[in-house]
Design a protein around this nucleic acid. Structure first.
Lengths: 226, 226
DNA sequence: GTCAAATTTTTTGTATACAACAGAGATCAT
DNA sequence: ATGATCTCTGTTGTATACAAAAAATTTGAC
């Protein structure tokens, strides 16, 4: 899994964006990044090109690359699509899951139970991810799984904000239980609608998200485009 | 909309892949492409990086880039996802469309009628695209619209194969009519299921597609990876 | 002191140079 | 003749160089 320099740089920068090292709206200076990573500008540019194709950074001609800052509206749109893709995966999983899929889902589900009980948000966050990935796999649609993983990854920072809301973790786990039940029972439509509700950001959860976003904004996360 | 060299190159190569100038499995030699377009290797590489991030080409470390060749299975998976995304757009459009959206849908729909009547597959192909784009817009989810356009574009060559099947054009148009009706009536679930059936590649249509694929393969389209 | 034009500086975009690696062919031993 | 190793060529990956454009700064007029 070596991956050449540009590949590692791509992951590195992508990670920096997702974890917040590079803030939304921030300008990504090529020379600066090159110095930071101890390489020349060439691989940096290649990494930025890839990130721009994914939609994580925006390259403005002759004016450099900036970290894309999706407004609350765009974030909502992304969650709306994510909900539909996940519910699709769930519906397919209900119809197509194998014994191995079942084992993987149950395994990750019980891990979630454990971290939810111990109120460890960080480890719940991780286990939750594994749980969802298990469903993607069980859909037996490789392309769908890839799309889900990519979008899930992109929404990571905002998901994280959501988990901070009081009791969200336990509610989330209860929803998981209902989803598992539907999938294992082979009830595609139940799995679909339960996953949609689980992922969608509606009503209170939307306002919670927006308020968390603006709070972050206020603490100087950027967003100002000169 | 000037776009720097690498931007134009990206579109150029992407187009070449979609239209078949570059065949699936074909190796994309950087120096060769550079000579062909009269530029240096640098912008060529940047274009290839972007295409690899989209998933159109695969960059094997130290072994060059090749045009990705999705097997029949992967193509089927992509159609399955496309069907779901389109039906989602249709469902949203049924609930959210404005007067302008309605006008755009009806306009493109009647264009389709015209080209279907005159049996002009090429112009039907184009008008059909406009029709579907109008639905994406009417969903009022910009992110969803982008995803749909990207996937639609990627499936272009295979859609084209499908249209060759006898009477497909007229059947397609009749399906459009039912979809328009559902959307304008605000019936989200009808729009969803009708669009899903319209886009999905099931039963006969799947075998037709596979047979067309293998016919193309037989005429020397490549796919051999050394 | 303020605003605008010109100049300098910085930064991007492309080309070229060079080093490291992969694949093909040649050489050699058996 | 066959198999393995070695060499050699071709291609990729990274660094550097240079040109053009945009931002910053200075200069000058009022």
């Amino acid at each position: 899994m070596a991956g050449n320099t540009f590949h590692k740089l791509r992951d590195e920068i992508e990670n920096g964006i997702v974890t917040g090292t590079f803030e939304p709206g921030e300008r990504l200076d090529e020379a600066q990044l090159a110095a930071r990573f101890g390489v020349s500008r060439t691989p940096i540019r290649e990494a930025l090109m890839q990130l721009s194709a994914i939609g994580l950074v925006e390259i403005r001609p002759r004016r450099g690359a900036i970290v894309v800052d999706p407004g609350p509206n765009r974030i909502f749109e992304m969650f709306e699509v994510m909900a539909e893709l996940e519910s699709m995966a769930g519906a397919l999983a209900a119809r197509r899951h194998t014994e191995e899929d079942k084992a993987a889902i149950l395994e990750s589900h019980s891990r979630c139970e454990h971290s939810a009980a111990s109120e460890d948000t960080d480890s719940y966050y991780y286990d939750n991810e594994v749980f969802h990935y298990a469903i993607y796999e069980a859909s037996h649609n490789g392309f769908l799984a890839e799309q889900c993983v990519a979008l899930h990854r992109r929404l990571r920072p905002y998901r994280r904000l959501q988990l901070r809301v009081r009791n969200r973790m336990k509610v989330s786990f209860r929803e998981h239980a209902a989803i598992v039940e539907a999938i294992l029972a082979g009830d595609a439509e139940a799995a679909r609608s339960r996953l949609r509700d689980h992922v969608a950001v509606q009503g209170d959860r939307f306002s919670d998200l927006v308020s968390n976003l603006s709070r972050r904004e206020a603490t100087g996360a950027g967003g100002q485009r000169r």
